[in-house]
């Protein structure tokens, strides 16, 4: 699980072009949206694509996104539970 969290941080930084952010800057329980990393709605869509492309997980209910993308902890837990690839 810890390796997955590190992998997710690296992917988020690369895929979302967070130029001035490093893996060590993101705590596992930091909010990804709002006051945390400050991601926006396009980033949310990009994360949904990442779940599909890299982990074979299709979000059938977009409303789920709010809790799944709350933090690295919640995202890693969801992927571990639902990973298809």
């Amino acid at each position: 699980m810890e390796n997955l969290k590190l992998e997710l941080k690296a992917k988020i930084i690369e895929n979302l072009n967070l130029e001035d952010v490093e893996v060590g800057d993101i705590a596992n329980d930091d909010a990804l949206f709002g006051d945390g990393l400050g991601l926006d709605s396009i980033d949310a869509l990009e994360l949904i694509v990442m779940l599909d492309k890299d982990y074979g997980i299709k979000l059938s209910d977009p409303k789920q996104g709010k809790s799944i993308f709350e933090s690295i902890d919640s995202l890693a837990a969801y992927i571990t539970e639902n990973k298809a690839k």
Partner: peptide, 9 residues
């Protein structure tokens, strides 16, 4: 087929 929303916009 994985269009990127961040590119598409």
């Amino acid at each position: 087929y994985f269009p990127s929303p961040a590119v598409f916009v």
